[in-house]
Design a protein around this nucleic acid. Structure first.
Length: 272
DNA sequence: AGGGCTACCTGTACGC
DNA sequence: TGCGTACAGGTAGCCC
């Protein structure tokens, strides 16, 4: 579910509803996630205010007005919902109460996590220290890609690695490479300058379109009743194995392969 | 050092 | 209907 556009959407949603609200209560319902939810988190949250929620790659960062910060990763199935009712759902992990409503972190597969840091240390924590540039920032540019020419990996593996560029995942890598017309198994070092340019251009285009649509929903992922996740209708290759390519219109040109244990979709005619 | 593979966990879809 | 298997958008830590 959550790659950069989805996390960006969640961030915007949380900022809209939680900013400047005082947290009145907090409760850990199920501490078990990728890492155990720190037990002292409730005490630190209560009576604090969220000054800002930001995003770095696929990570959410909650800055509090008490010199603490919370780092959150949604994993595969993590999501936040806002509710005025106190009804619990299966796989709810953390409840945060604000005036008349509560925000709830739910995660079916428990690959997500919620960690606590001092605000001054959060951006240098092990999770964020080594990750690559934001793909929509000016730091993700042609000279950055050229500098990384030593990387002996396929272009898809390169884009998937968070230390190379932060926030791209399995869906958007397939989509970006389809848009670029580049074969996902092509060695990154063998790309020509014009192919680097294509990747940069397609990355900006695809991510901006997806953010505009509120991200991609494939399963039943949603936030509260917000109308988000409509990028699914815009996917050109992902999950289209054995179907006709939208670009070359030939039959059965979309193929599914596996790279590093993950599925990749591409057009055998359009991507070289 | 830097890649590749596997584990982590639950739900769903599909074949028999 | 039920059971077994494969697969699902994530990272991290091990192994080579």
């Amino acid at each position: 579910m959550p790659e950069l556009p989805e996390v960006e959407t969640v961030k915007n949603f949380l900022n809209l509803h939680l900013l400047k609200s005082t947290i009145l209560w907090a409760k850990i319902e199920n501490k078990k996630l990728r890492y155990e939810i720190p037990p002292q988190i409730c005490k630190i949250l209560i009576n604090s205010r969220i000054t800002k929620i930001t995003r770095r790659g696929k990570y959410l960062i909650f800055l509090l007005n008490n010199k603490f910060a919370i780092l959150c990763h949604l994993g595969m199935t993590g999501c936040f919902r806002l509710s005025t009712k106190s009804k619990k759902r299966k796989h709810d992990h953390l409840f945060i109460g604000i005036k008349k409503k509560q925000i709830i972190f739910n995660d079916i597969r428990k690959f997500g996590f919620i960690k606590l840091y001092k605000a001054s240390e959060i951006f240098t924590c092990p999770h964020l220290k080594k990750i690559g540039p934001e793909p929509l920032s000016e730091n993700f540019n042609i000279s950055y890609l050229e500098k990384n020419k030593s990387k002996k990996v396929s272009v898809k593996s390169f884009l998937m690695n968070q230390n190379n560029v932060a926030g791209l995942g399995n869906i958007y890598c397939s989509e970006i490479l389809f848009d670029s017309g580049i074969h996902p198994e092509k060695n990154f070092v063998k790309l020509k300058p014009e192919e680097y340019e294509k990747i940069l251009k397609s990355t900006t285009k695809i991510l901006n379109q997806a953010i505009e649509k509120g991200g991609t929903t494939i399963k039943d992922y949603n936030i509260s009743d917000e109308k988000i996740g409509y990028f699914k209708n815009k996917l050109k290759v992902y999950d289209r194995n054995g179907m006709a390519c939208y670009r070359c219109k030939k039959n059965i040109n979309i193929k599914k392969i596996f790279q590093n244990g993950r599925s990749t979709f591409y057009c055998v005619k359009c991507q070289k």
